[in-house]
Design a protein around this nucleic acid. Structure first.
Lengths: 388, 388
DNA sequence: CTACTAATGCTGGATAGTTTCAAAAGTATC
DNA sequence: GATACTTTTGAAACTATCCAGCATTAGTAG
């Protein structure tokens, strides 16, 4: 519950300003009367609010549209390009970055691959490069950013330091928050990649508008991200979702069923075997099908634990293996049904490789939402948006 | 995020009224100037708001206190007795009820035992009796209630019907919401007992002010209740917390280790054995200690799953066995430490047998908080509180 | 009894919002 | 091309709410 702080007349103006901004952010070219109705205000009041907002650069007029009855109305839009956010996904093989405007409209994205074996310095160099290229591609500089989220594997502390990364040993200890802060303006948030992928699904993916979501990262790693009450669940010490650490959950050994498949040519890289298993299973190979079934069984133990604990509306199957959802989904759902009191819907991720970076963008936007568009503060731009 | 709805001048007054009520609810006898400061308002504005509130019966004046310098100030208090809430806990052996005022101050509580084997009708009769006695003891009638929460085992649907109760077979299908609605005014909420016990701990128990809490019901049944972001987590279909249904979690077989203890005299009721085991363990009996250790190990598997998934600040050990926390706590904590990435604090429940009924009271109060003291509606009493 | 203190009651002024109405700028019709 | 109609605009009058400041009042202290 937020503190109900009483106020001043100017506070009312603040609230009304926010209501107008909110109305325009929901649906963009809107006439004055439409805004007034949406914000539940009278026309003159709306007019004055809009005049102020226009002077401050928050909204702009759109050319009036002809062809309708009566005097043509002025139309306003929210200037989503007043500020931008950046989402960066630092993965094992790839570094991605996406720039979006305040409406979440993507402006530019960039990616570069990096060797899994790359050291800390080299990986950070790639990060810098991708950020620079992404900003340049969008025609921006770091100073135009209002918030940035960096996604990484492993545990991250509140300061933005990677406390522990299992997949990338050299990564442990890197102070990502500090590093990226030097390159962009505005706050830099650092967050676990799996959680951000979950967030992305509730934003632009298959979990849109779901309140409670369990996101499964099914890939060479297995992980989970939780969205509870529409918000990312981090936990007290940012360690939520690590249910796979419990041996009884089956996630530690799950991939072994796939990697250990005997149908692949001898000497194949174990990681490559996985793709072959799914392909073979798709073709009806009985050994491959059995391996997939064993994998799914182990995966579903941990998943069932999460489902039973949280009773989500939806389970999203993401990660690299979600490309093979056609083979996985049906047996997975059957296993859940066996174990759960109420079986939620299961859907494969629709976002592909961009999921994490998208989630990072959304996370940055959510941060702005709380600190800039929040009742309690009123509109508070990091720097007053410059006029065109 | 709530819809920011713009407003009217009177909306500002609404907000200020709420701010004043909030200030008075937090700390009660307050002078006018103190209220003004707490609500961030000027003195004249506060005065007018208080005048209105007094006329409507929401606040009352307290006798001014002498002995200080200057003209003695009027002092106001929130009239917590303007309305009341009822919490009812329908357990296997006992039915409890608590009446509290709007501040959550307990006014009266009542309990009656009922046979585990009692049928539906008989149990409902006891419920009616306890409710009637509790109201009478507080000097109230059902019409004085603004909200009621009924706690029961098993799954409850949104309508207040018990969909499935494992412990009390005859209980499945009973429409508790409807039944109790006939006896009290105001909304009747029906909720799972375990969840309410968790809520109680965050209110008056050891988990005060913790944001994320896992509550374990350790007793003849094993269950869990989750508080996430300070709010009861119910899940999409009100089936959250049922992680014990998964065999891998160990909760199904956990009690067997205690019941099957060979140290009890032959023919002892299995339920009674449990108490003996704990007593023997306390005295250092090696067999009993081993049985307890085995129980704790199984209990901690499911607990670890919840902890790993949610990363709570605190685990509360409640339920009947929490009376033997001296024997359980230390090995339990050790087991958690073995399995969890970050081990939260573990504390035994401090509320005893009243936990569930207290949680029911709190749940009813929370409901009022949302519907009566919520910005968005302004103060909306179910019926305007009558003047004294 | 007088000086001091802090709350009260009141008045005027400022701000934000609403309602109302004539003027303006278009389209539709003859 | 003039007239009727429709909808937005701009301005004025009015109302509700809050704030600052000041004289008044009811106590304590010496």
């Amino acid at each position: 519950m937020t503190e109900p702080l009483g106020g001043n007349l100017s506070r009312l103006r603040q609230l009304n300003t926010l209501a107008v901004v909110h109305a325009l952010r929901r649906q963009s070219p809107l006439t004055l009367t439409e805004v007034a109705k949406a914000a539940n205000l009278s026309r003159p009041a709306t007019e004055e609010v809009l005049r102020d907002l226009e002077a401050q650069g928050w909204v702009a007029q759109v050319d009036p549209v002809a062809g309708s009855m009566g005097r043509p109305a002025r139309r306003y839009r929210f200037r989503a390009d007043a500020g931008h956010v950046l989402g960066v996904d630092i993965g094992g093989h790839t570094v991605r970055a996406i720039v979006a405007d305040l409406d979440g409209e993507l402006r530019h994205s960039e990616r570069r691959s990096v060797s899994v074996a790359a050291g800390r310095a080299e990986r950070l160099r790639v990060v810098d490069k991708v950020i620079a290229e992404c900003l340049a591609g969008a025609g921006l500089t770091g100073a135009d950013l209002w918030a940035t989220t960096v996604a990484t594997t492993g545990f991250v502390d509140a300061d933005g330091r990677v406390v522990l990364s299992v997949g990338l040993p050299e990564w442990t200890g890197v102070h990502l928050g500090e590093h990226v802060s030097g390159r962009v303006s505005g706050p830099v948030l650092v967050e676990n990649d799996c959680r951000l992928a979950a967030l992305a699904e509730t934003w632009r993916g298959v979990a849109r508008y779901a309140e409670h979501v369990v996101y499964l990262l099914a890939g060479l790693r297995t992980g989970a991200g939780l969205v509870i009450d529409g918000r990312l669940h981090r936990g007290f010490a940012r360690a939520a979702g690590e249910i796979g650490a419990l041996p009884e959950m089956g996630w530690i050994r799950a991939q072994e069923h796939l990697r250990g498949w005997s149908g692949a040519p001898a000497g194949t890289d174990p990681d490559e075997v996985v793709a072959l298993v799914f392909a073979a299973a798709r073709d009806g190979d009985r050994g491959a099908l059995a391996a997939v079934r064993r994998y799914v069984r182990d995966l579903s133990i941990g998943a069932s634990a999460l489902v039973l604990a949280l009773d989500p509306q939806l389970v999203v199957l993401g990660g690299g293996f979600s490309r093979s959802a056609d083979v996985l989904l049906e047996p997975f759902h059957r296993e859940l049904e066996k174990r759960c009191v109420r079986t939620p819907e299961v859907l494969p991720s629709a976002l592909g490789d961009d999921a994490v970076a998208l989630g990072a963008v959304k996370h940055a936007l959510d941060h702005l939402e709380q600190h800039i568009f929040d009742p309690g503060n009123g509109l508070a731009a990091p720097e007053p948006p410059q006029r065109p």
